[in-house]
Design a protein around this nucleic acid. Sequence first.
DNA 1: CCGCGACCTGTCAACCTGGACATGTCCGAC
DNA 2: GTCGGACATGTCCAGGTTGACAGGTCGCGG
Lengths: 181, 181
Amino acid sequence: MSLRHALLGLLAQGPASGYDLTRAFAGDDGGIGQYAWQAGHSRIYPELGKMADAGLVVVDETGPRGRKSYALTDEGRTELRRWMLHRPERTTVRDETVLRMFLVQSLEPDDARRLLEGIAEHCAAELAKLRSVMDEVDAEHDPHEPVPFGRLAGEYGLRQYEAVHGWALWSLERLGATVPG
Amino acid sequence: MSLRHALLGLLAQGPASGYDLTRAFAGDDGGIGQYAWQAGHSRIYPELGKMADAGLVVVDETGPRGRKSYALTDEGRTELRRWMLHRPERTTVRDETVLRMFLVQSLEPDDARRLLEGIAEHCAAELAKLRSVMDEVDAEHDPHEPVPFGRLAGEYGLRQYEAVHGWALWSLERLGATVPG
DNA sequence: CCGCGACCTGTCAACCTGGACATGTCCGAC
DNA sequence: GTCGGACATGTCCAGGTTGACAGGTCGCGG
C-alpha cells in the first residue's frame, strides 16, 4: 500500500488538495508520476479520506469550489519517516519499459535493433528536455540555500536516462549494429 | 495487461510450465522479477489458460505430477513482436524504491543521509554480486556466438546500480554542503 | 517402505486500479 | 452577462493482483 506513503511524502512538502495531488501524479513533467508511482483522483480522494480517519492527515483549510486542503499531522510525519527508513526485504517493481528491455533478446536481431534505436533516441530526447529544466532550476538556486525539493529526484532521472541511453548503445554494438549518431 | 506479454516473452526462450514461470517471477537473482515485473502463480495459471484459449500458447507436452509445458504459437510470437515494437505513449511505472528516492527530501537531513548511505551500500553490494555473475557468463561465452539470452538484461542491471550508486553519493555531497555532518 | 521436501496445479475472497460517469463552481475573456 | 475551460470532488464497475486455502504427485535419503 504505497499510495498512502506517496501521498504522505507529497504532503510533507506542504498542504495540498486532492486535486493538487492528482496533478502531481498525472504529470509527465519529470515528476513522481513519470518515474515512481501513478494514481488517479478516483483512488486519491478515498485514500485521503481513510488517512484522515486514521489521523495521518487533517483538513487544513477549505477554499472555493469545495476545495479541501490536507496537511500532515505529527502522526502522519512519523509514519512517513518509519516507512522511509525501514528497508523492506523485497520491494515491488512494475515497469513496462524495463520489461521490454528484458525481452529484447526474444526478438529477431533486426527487430531488436530497431527497438534499441528507438529507446536510445527517446532517452536522448528526454535527457535534453530534463537537462534544460534542471539548468534553469540550478540557475535560480542560491548555493547557500538548501537543495530545492525535487532537485535530487531530478538528478536521479538524469542519471537514469544516461544509464539507459548508454545501455542501448552498448547493446546495439553487441548485436553488431552500426551505432547511430 | 503486461503479465500476458511478460509470459509470452519468457516462453520465447523455450517451453516452460506454470511452475517454471512462477519461479522466474519470484527470483531475486537478478531476473525479471527483481527489476521488471512480479506475478504469483495464482495469476499465472489462469492467465496461461486464457492465453491458450486465445491461441497464443499451446500445451506442448505433459510431464509427471500433472506438469503442463506451454509453448508459443506463431500467433503468440506475432503478438509479442507487436507489443515489443509498439511504443506506447505513456507506460506505467510503479517502483517503491524510486518512490523513496523522490521523497528523500521530505526527511530531516540526518535521516536523509542515513537513507542515502544505506542505498549506496546496498548498490555497491548488489553491483559486486552481479559483476561476478556476469564475469562468469562472459568467460563461458564464445565471442563468435550470439549474445546469450539475458546478457543484455544483466548489463542493464549493472548500469542501473552504477547510476543509483553514483546518484546516492552525489546526493550525499549535496546534502553535506548545506548541513554540516 | 516411509516420510519429507520439492514439484505442480488450481480456486477464492479481499483489495487495488483505471477509466467512465456524475456533478457542480469559479474566473477571465469576449 | 455568458460561456468555455480549468478547478474540484466524488462514485461505480470491470478487471488486475495478492495471499491464503486446497489438494495431489514424484524422488530420494534413511
